[in-house]
Amino acid sequence: MMRRVSVRVARPEFSRQISTRSVTVLLVVLAATTVAIILTTAYGDYSVPLNRTVEAILGNGDPIDTLVIRDHRLPRVLMCVLVGAALALSGGVFQTLTRNPLAAPDIIGVTQGAAVVAVWMILRGLPEAVLPVGAFAGAMAALAVVAVLGVRRDLSMYRLILIGIGLNTLIGAAVTYLIARANAVERERLNLAEQWLVGSTSATTWPKVGIAAGTLALLTPAILSCGRSLNTLQLGDDLGAALGVPIRRLQLTTVSLAALLAAVAVSVTGPIGFVAFVSPHIARRLTGTAGVASMPTAMGVGGLLLLIADYAAQRVLEPSQLPVGYVTIVLGAPYLLYLLVRGESRMGA
């Protein structure tokens, strides 16, 4: 049963209807994420007691603690939370707009666009620090191609997706080509390229965390403020338009913002699979709502998932370390199959 509370203020006029379940779930997820942040920062191959962890975070712990916690673990942990949240929000927007519960931002070509440039740069031996810039440029270029080919007077999500699929295939072939024709020098860097293609947080630095945090801080309110219109558009283009939703403007804005979020995420960590697709699902289940009200929870779930996956990636096969992308695939792929088998994913129904 869904309980809803009406919140009304007379002056200045303000009113909302809030589902108590959504709010409770969101708070629980956020609390769990906070606990997970502290624990995964403290524990590892070199474990630090919690009180010393806090001191190290604040900058007045012992030097070794500070090195491990502040310079090494904390940025990586925060990156997981930020990228997970960004992917989840982006995925939620794509699933809402396409009315397809299986959609993810990959369909619009940003992931592959970033990948082809990143792989090229890695094989050429360009420095790690400029990788995100190149990957972001690649993602934007792919988005531009989709926009030029896909945006007509009437913006059809369907056409956008088909163009995205076509472009993905094409760029995927280009990536394969780059790898296949690698010369002897480049061959030694293939390992790095492959690791990037799976998605990894091991190369996290504070500036990258700053970029991810800044992007999220700017784009999240922008996307969530379109929430009511997105909810209305879920009822179909015709009914949405009849209710007064500026459909084309809304689609253009939210697709661009969601693609931008995904592009930044891919640029800093590589294409981490399944988080964008799985998190909105879990959030819809937990909150019991099909609407945009589940999106903040989806962001929390995405961050928590990626954090746990990254911790597992570092600890499960110790001392060898896996890129986190492998873990999300191992967790996400069965979930996708489970959804398909249970028939939960009625395409566009």
């Binding site: 869904m2 009406s6 919140v7 009304r8 200045p12 006029e13 303000f14 009113s15 909302r16 209807q17 009315r99 519960p101 403020s225 009511r228 219109s229 909810n231 209305t232 879920q234 009822l235 179909g236 015709d238 009914l239 209710l243 007064g244 939703v245 819809r284 019991g288 709502t289 099909a290 609407g291 939960e344 009625r346 566009g348 129904a349």
Partner: peptide, 29 residues
């Protein structure tokens, strides 16, 4: 043939008909 979002309840669906009367501040008067 309007679209039924999965899991949306009757009351939530009917509430969405209020869209043109609402604004950022006033969403459930």
């Amino acid at each position: 043939g309007p679209t039924v979002p999965e899991g949306l309840t009757v009351e939530e669906l009917v509430s969405r008909g209020r869209y043109p009367h609402q604004s950022f501040r006033r969403q459930w008067s």
